[in-house]
Amino acid sequence: MSRRVLLLLAVACGVAVGNVYFPQAVSPLVAAGLGVPPDSAALVVTATQLGYSLGIFLLVPLGDRLPHRPLIVSLVAVTAVSLLAAGAAPGLPPLVGASVLIGVTTVIAPVIGPMAAGLVAADRRGEVSGTLLAGSIGGMLLARTFAGNVGEWLGWRAPYLVAGALTAVLAVVLAYVVPKSAPATRQRYPSLIIEPLRLLRAEPELRRSCFYQATIFGGFSAVWTTVALLLTGPTYGMGAEAVGWLALVGAATMVCTPIAGRQVDRRGSDPINLVCMIGVIASAAVLIPGVLGGWVGLAALVVGTLLLDVAMQSGMVANLVRVYALRPDARSRLNTAYMTCAYLGGTLGSWAGTRAYTTLGWLGVCGLVGLLGAVALAVHTGLPRPEPSVSADA
């Protein structure tokens, strides 16, 4: 796999992941535009993440069963149509339904990841996973900034319509870029989607990686679902574009994740996981002054969200490398189990974060993040964890 193809695949991951995250920046605009309470509008974010979890479980295993190029292009094309439908939704229920469909079909990043891992030597998987994740991060950050600014100027529908057009262009590009591949298995679909559950039962290292990412990603989602409510509420009184600019600060993670990948290649996954969990707990403490408002509060939000982003994304690289090393013939199914658990954790985190913010305010969200990080750290330090040997296959 050439460097040019890898970079194009990273861009594709960024566009796809951006479709999951940009609703976080426009949920206050959805509330105002459709005349619904802010916590009801936040259901759009939760619905997209729930759909993403379903898509990972139902569609990502097909990466082991079907050639990658037609699978990826088809998913991207359906995502484009779903985004356009969301932009034309007349009310909240149709928007929530379209958001679920967007999430279900915009799962090309977890399809591309295992494909790319199989195209490089074992000692480059951390680097390649980090590069693809950097692309995903770039899409996530730019999507929030784009959606917040465009939505503030043109209304909440505009980000969906523009994203739909860009995703349609991406489908055409990927039809020529995605490498041709042969299926890794001929399993029938019912047994294919059950296989991730069997792998979860059979592989303790997979279960461990899933637990780590579900808890940490839950805290991450809790913060980014509720920070829009904080910034647009009475404490700060800002517009939706402020969420996008805050998210853009996390661009440093695009540099950190390839570095984390190289460190995983050299040192193994466990030391990186440990540092990242400590970083998540520290981020919860740093975020607390965000409740004060003003420049002090903004500084706390900038530093805290940056630390949280770097810790979560670097930990994901460590977990992915551990997972990909377990069964080279079943990487898509392993990734299905891992990513499904991760995004179910994120969905629950979004829901719990909204409840915590409604009940206890920003301090409740910070407490939730710290608790989730502490639980992950307690499990990590309390259980024996033999590092699996890395397969030498390409």
Results as ranks from 00 to 15, higher is better:
residue 95 L to Y: 02
residue 230 L to P: 12
residue 390 V to W: 14
residue 195 E to N: 08
residue 326 L to A: 10
residue 142 L to C: 12
residue 373 G to C: 13
residue 268 G to H: 06
residue 384 P to M: 08
residue 237 G to I: 11
residue 207 R to H: 01
residue 352 A to Q: 13
residue 380 H to C: 07
residue 150 V to T: 06
residue 65 R to H: 00
residue 264 V to M: 10
residue 214 A to D: 04
residue 114 P to L: 01
residue 340 T to W: 08
residue 153 W to T: 13
residue 155 G to D: 09
residue 127 E to M: 10
residue 331 R to E: 09
residue 56 I to T: 15
residue 20 V to R: 13
residue 217 F to P: 11
residue 186 R to K: 09
residue 321 V to Y: 02
residue 355 R to N: 02
residue 183 P to N: 11
residue 2 S to T: 14
residue 41 A to Y: 04
residue 246 L to R: 09
residue 325 A to R: 11
residue 278 I to V: 15
residue 123 D to R: 07
residue 292 L to N: 09
residue 136 S to Y: 06
residue 370 G to R: 13
residue 209 S to K: 04
residue 318 A to T: 05
residue 136 S to V: 12
residue 188 R to C: 01
residue 23 P to W: 00
residue 32 A to M: 02
residue 168 A to G: 15
residue 387 E to F: 05
residue 209 S to F: 00
residue 180 K to F: 00
residue 96 V to G: 03
residue 327 R to H: 14
residue 178 V to W: 01
residue 122 A to Q: 10
residue 294 G to D: 05
residue 130 G to D: 00
residue 128 V to D: 08
residue 113 G to V: 15
residue 387 E to L: 08
residue 294 G to H: 05
residue 215 T to P: 03
residue 66 L to G: 00
residue 357 Y to V: 08
residue 135 G to Q: 10
residue 108 I to C: 06
residue 257 T to R: 02
residue 11 V to I: 15
residue 16 A to T: 12
residue 171 A to W: 02
residue 340 T to V: 07
residue 287 L to T: 10
residue 2 S to V: 06
residue 385 R to Y: 05
residue 22 F to D: 11
residue 319 N to M: 08
residue 131 T to E: 05
residue 61 P to A: 08
residue 327 R to T: 10
residue 8 L to S: 13
residue 324 Y to C: 06
residue 317 V to K: 12
residue 342 A to D: 01
residue 163 A to D: 12
residue 219 G to A: 04
residue 161 L to V: 13
residue 269 S to K: 04
residue 392 A to T: 15
residue 142 L to F: 14
residue 67 P to Y: 01
residue 181 S to L: 06
residue 374 A to E: 11
residue 260 A to Q: 03
residue 117 A to T: 14
residue 217 F to H: 13
residue 272 I to R: 08
residue 209 S to L: 02
residue 199 L to G: 12
residue 299 A to E: 04
residue 368 L to K: 08
residue 357 Y to G: 11
residue 129 S to R: 00
residue 123 D to F: 00
